[in-house]
């Protein structure tokens, strides 16, 4: 299995876990809204739990985008350049992403580690925030790894970044198909 395929598999799992979490958060807000409307009793801590869980999903997804490359970016120059120049551009771009991700992991991770266990709690059930924050930091650590892998793939194999908002052929045909 090529490094690219292997990473693809791992990332797919990470992404699916995050996606399921997004689904669960949607359900939580739905149930809470329904509970409030029908039985005058929303789910306790729905507010804090949904936003904290969503943060985890987003940061794990951030790791996925670091590998796939489909962040929102300006592709106009890249598309005018030849393959070689584009590779240089992709390298610079992903070094920028790497720098940002490392700084973010360092500072945010430091803050979370310094207050765990303990620190802030949810409003209703007084559940600690830190397990969620630890998962957020785990997502950032994964993002450093995935961004590094993408950088290496660009450098070594010339594999480019996916432009954002362009659908892959199979997805394009799937879209709207029943």
């Amino acid at each position: 299995m090529t490094p690219s395929r292997l990473t693809e598999r791992v990332i797919t799992v990470v992404e699916r876990v995050a996606a399921v979490m997004l689904g669960l958060v949607t359900l939580l807000v739905f149930v809470s809204a329904l509970g409030r409307y029908l039985f005058a009793s929303p789910v306790p801590d729905a507010f804090d739990l949904s936003r904290l869980a969503l943060a985890v999903a987003i940061m794990w997804g951030f790791a996925s985008l670091g590998f796939r490359g489909n962040h929102i970016k300006v592709d106009i120059l890249a598309e005018m350049l030849g393959a070689k120049a584009r590779r240089v551009l992709d390298l610079i771009a992903w070094l920028g992403l790497l720098l940002f991700t490392i700084l973010l992991t360092w500072k945010l991770g430091g803050r979370v580690l310094s207050q765990m266990p303990g620190g802030e709690t949810t409003m209703d059930l007084r559940l600690p925030h830190w397990p969620f924050l630890a998962c957020v930091v785990a997502g950032l650590v994964m993002a450093i790894v995935t961004t590094l892998i993408r950088l290496w793939l660009v450098l070594r194999y010339g594999e480019g970044l996916e432009p954002h908002e362009t659908l892959k052929q199979d997805e394009a045909h799937g879209a709207g198909h029943e």
């Binding site: 409030r36 009793s41 929303p42 306790p44 507010f47 804090d48 409003m123 209703d124 007084r126």
Partner: peptide
């Protein structure tokens, strides 16, 4: 106050 509301049998709504 959230804790107080909950202790009275109400529900706290965070906005």
């Amino acid at each position: 106050m959230a804790r107080y509301i909950n202790s009275l049998g109400g529900t706290s709504v965070q906005v």
